[in-house]
């Protein structure tokens, strides 16, 4: 990212200050400061903690232009990250429904994932975009999506060396498509940047970080939480299966919404591509990736379903919040110049 985000509370202020000053001697006090901060029962909506997590994870992706690369493996920052993750994981475990127990075969895993999708609560952003969203609201929709879609597929790619056989082959097959099958212009992240350009939005990753609220960051942080840790290799596969299984039909609706507002190619290319690609990916992800992994390592089945349930939970919360906010006539973006308390 070009610039560091603005702080959103005491912990993110301390963290960003540390990175800006490039002063590792002050890093040890950060984890202590985290312990002193009040426990917010809803870390999903905690602006300060979700922004800290986002910044700490981003050090592992493309980093920040002004921050030295060596911060990625600073042990004090890793400790801080681990403490925030502990609260994040606890909250997730408290909020998801019971994990299904199924036979360790691909078909049973795929069926259980489908049943989870069917049962998932949450309001549909896709229906809202298809039928009712204004031009300002679809621009907000793209801004929220940009914090993942401009690096689409990256968090799941971390899992590749941790898998073997059928599951690995399936993940590489899906990711190959996500990254354009050798054609950079077909990378899904680049298709998304062209969609943004069509609505006069900045397609540089992180350009809108200061406008994107905690619940949206939480849904992206979730992927990094699972993707960066071997113990969550099941969860990141379950997460991807859910993303692929809930993509084709919503993307057709997004495309319809943008056409209703008068847009065509290349703005709609991103959504049209996902209708077709994800109809393929959902079959591979549910059966060969998640199912193949459970067949090879039955002990990670619970972790696969945890990842699936967490994906549905956070996207459900974010979607419901987004539609409720739009219906109330308000903006879903954080204020441009103010820093929330």
């Amino acid at each position: 990212m070009r610039t560091l985000p603005r702080p959103r509370g005491p912990l993110s202020s301390a963290l960003l200050n540390l990175l800006e000053r490039d002063d590792p001697s002050r890093a040890p006090e950060l984890a202590d400061r985290m312990e002193q901060s009040p426990v917010d029962p809803d870390i999903f909506f905690d602006e300060d903690l979700q922004l800290c997590l986002f910044v700490l994870y981003e050090l592992h992706y493309s980093g920040f232009d002004s921050v030295a690369d060596r911060w990625e493996w600073n042990t004090d920052l890793l400790q801080l990250r681990s403490r925030i993750e502990e609260r994040f994981e606890t909250r997730i475990m408290q909020s998801i429904p019971a994990i299904p127990r199924v036979e360790a075969n691909a078909q049973s895993v795929a069926e259980a994932l489908s049943a989870m999708v069917e049962a998932a609560p949450g309001r549909s952003v896709a229906d809202f975009v298809a039928r009712r969203a204004t031009i300002d609201q679809v621009r907000e929709f793209l801004v929220h999506k940009s914090i993942y879609q401009l690096k689409e597929a990256d968090p799941h790619t971390w899992a590749i060396p941790r898998l073997g056989g059928r599951a690995k082959s399936a993940l590489v097959e899906i990711q190959g498509d996500e990254y354009g099958n050798g054609l950079p212009g077909r990378m899904h992240s680049q298709l998304f940047a062209r969609t943004m350009a069509g609505l006069d939005l900045d397609g540089e990753f992180g350009a809108y970080i200061d406008r994107i609220p905690a619940i949206v960051l939480a849904s992206v942080n979730l992927m990094s939480l699972f993707g960066l840790q071997r113990r969550h290799r099941g969860a990141i596969c379950g997460h991807l299966a859910i993303y692929e299984m809930t993509s084709s039909l919503p993307n057709a609706k997004y495309a319809r919404g943008f056409r209703r507002l008068g847009f065509g190619a290349p703005v709609t290319d991103y959504f049209d591509e996902h209708v077709e690609a994800d109809a393929v990916h959902e079959q591979i992800a549910a059966r060969d990736l998640a199912g193949g992994l459970v067949e090879a390592e039955p002990q990670v089945a619970g972790n696969v379903f945890l990842g699936a349930a967490a994906a549905l939970l956070l996207d459900g919360l974010a979607g419901t919040w987004q539609v409720d906010t739009w219906e109330s006539g308000a903006t879903t973006l954080l204020p441009a110049a103010e820093v929330p308390a």
């Binding site: 084709s248 039909l249 057709a252 209708v275 077709e276 994800d278 109809a279 393929v280 959902e282």
Partner: peptide, 13 residues
Amino acid sequence: SLIKPFCDGTHKL
């Protein structure tokens, strides 16, 4: 499917 011969997920609906 609305994009035949390819699948668009309509079988679920």
